[in-house]
């Protein structure tokens, strides 16, 4: 058996690196035979969380589906940076149609495969948060309620980054975007707005719903692999930092993602048929400020004067997540 020495940098977390694991439990991404579904050379920004998430998710999906995979992509950063003709970065059958219809296009592919008795092929649809929670939400809900045989991956970077950082329904409270600017009374995105699509997905009672983060790529791969093994409508909501839109250091993408998880702001859980079955515990809780202070989109909260009320509200959201999902148990 040939093995390759993989450089691994311990990043100050409790995450076990690949080299510490036996080969069978290492990430798909660490394997020589990974498929590079989203090949290198694409045009994503430095430190792009979405490119990272998509790369891990799709290679894991390819492995789990024995390379029998078709992917649909909503309009958005991932589509644009991966596909300027004729330089497609996709090594899998891949289709982009519109901004708001990726779930429906995927449903159509699944239907065609069923008509053609091809039950060996897996269909994935993917889109950013704008495509998923806003413009494509009707199609997503339709795909869910029909329980179409599609795995939908939402790469959530919490705003419309492709068009230049505008607010989406997934933009967190107080975040500055170009349409929720840090001016006037209550600067940034209003609190109380927005929607929690993983919970809405769950309410459809579909076979599998999970949240994941590029902070834990093992976990992301595991959830994708698990989802590929399930038939029917499946949904994975992946938290992916966007250095450009969040105003974070491209070198800090993993760190920012990890702090979102460890603060409780982005809870990792899995649900089956409408019920949460497990969540990933936080081993060492961090205050939300540690996460927020790395991003200029929250800069206005730190003053002077510091917006203690806003920070408390965000901390309350994190604490609520910790309680609801039992993250400290």
């Amino acid at each position: 058996m040939t093995t390759e020495r993989i450089k691994f940098y311990q990043t100050g977390t409790f995450t076990a690196g690949n080299r510490l694991l036996d080969e069978a439990t290492r990430t798909v991404q660490s394997r020589l035979d990974r498929t590079n579904s989203l090949n290198s050379g694409h045009r994503a920004c430095q430190g792009c969380g979405e490119a990272l998430g998509a790369r891990y998710a799709l290679d894991a999906a390819m492995r789990a589906s024995h390379n029998q995979l078709i992917a649909v992509n909503a309009t958005g950063c991932l589509e644009v940076f991966s596909s300027p003709y004729p330089e497609s970065a996709w090594q899998i059958p891949w289709m982009h149609s519109l901004f708001g219809n990726a779930p429906a296009v995927a449903s159509g592919i699944a239907a065609a495969l069923r008509a053609k008795r091809r039950d060996d092929v897996t269909v994935i649809a993917q889109g950013g948060d704008g495509a998923t929670v806003d413009i494509g939400f009707g199609c997503l809900s339709g795909m869910f309620e029909r329980n179409d045989d599609v795995l939908y991956l939402c790469y959530d970077n919490e705003a419309y980054m492709n068009t230049g950082i505008q607010r989406s329904g997934a933009t967190p409270p107080f975040a500055r975007t170009n349409t929720t600017q840090a001016v006037g009374e209550h600067p940034g995105n209003p609190i109380g707005n927005g929607k929690n699509v993983p919970r809405i997905a769950l309410a459809h009672g579909i076979p599998y719903v999970a949240t994941a983060s590029v902070a834990d790529l093992h976990d992301l791969e595991r959830k994708v692999t698990k989802a590929i093994g399930v038939r029917g409508a499946r949904y994975i909501h992946v938290h992916v930092p966007c250095p450009l839109g969040w105003g974070s250091d491209p070198a800090h993408t993993m760190k920012v993602a990890r702090l979102a998880v460890e603060s409780g702001l982005f809870p990792l859980f899995e649900a089956e048929f409408g019920k949460v079955i497990c969540s990933t515990p936080i081993r060492r809780k961090v205050p939300v400020e540690r996460y927020l202070e790395l991003q200029t989109r929250f800069k206005h909260l730190f003053g002077p004067p510091q917006d203690t009320e806003a920070l408390a509200a965000i901390q309350a959201m994190a604490d609520d997540n910790i309680a609801v999902y039992g993250l400290m148990e």
Binding site: I70, V72, M95, S97, L98, G100, N101, A104, V105, A106, S107, G108, I109, A110, A111, A112, L113, R114, A115, K116, R117, G138, C139, S141, G142, E145, R146
Partner: peptide
């Protein structure tokens, strides 16, 4: 083995066909 999909909008109806037609 025709698949008949009751979808949630006309936009979805044609979008479903986009995926299906592209699948042959």
């Amino acid at each position: 083995r025709c698949q008949f999909l009751n979808v949630e909008s006309e936009f979805a109806a044609l979008s479903v066909l986009i995926g299906a037609s592209a699948s042959g």
